[in-house]
């Protein structure tokens, strides 16, 4: 994992697991680059989750762990999407960790 990414002339610092060091460094362009590092090309279905996570974090100052993420998505986007399988299809084996990373949030606590 690289410890920084370049966005135009700016160098954006990441921690050793690839999370943003400064949450205010986030932009959609940064999200695309962070996703690329995870081998993900962001589609509309990813963006709807990224925006949901960011507004959740703004309200609760917390990145949701897996179970909470599933319940959050179920509540906000409906039961079809509020499933582990759907989220793993988009973000891979650890959807809470990877989606928080791309959304520019801290790593979720209490994540198995």
């Amino acid at each position: 994992m690289k410890n920084s990414i370049a966005v135009g002339d700016d160098i954006i610092n990441l921690d050793k697991e690839g999370y943003l060091r400064q949450l205010e460094d986030w932009s959609e362009e940064v999200a695309n680059l962070l996703a690329k590092q995870e081998g993900i090309t962001l589609q509309q279905t990813h963006w709807e989750l990224i925006h949901l996570l960011r507004s959740f974090y703004q309200r609760h100052q917390l990145s949701p762990a897996n179970r909470a993420l599933v319940n959050l998505v179920k509540r906000e986007l409906g039961p079809e999407k509020g499933k582990s399988a759907y989220l793993m299809g988009l973000f891979g084996g650890s959807p809470a960790k990877i989606s928080s990373k791309i959304a520019g949030l801290p790593k979720p606590d209490n994540c198995l």
């Binding site: 609760h60 179970r67 319940n71």
Partner: peptide
């Protein structure tokens, strides 16, 4: 600090 009650509001999402 972080406002603790904002995090407490997420308890239902954790079941």
């Amino acid at each position: 600090s972080k406002t603790l009650v904002n995090a407490l509001e997420t308890l239902d999402l954790y079941g």
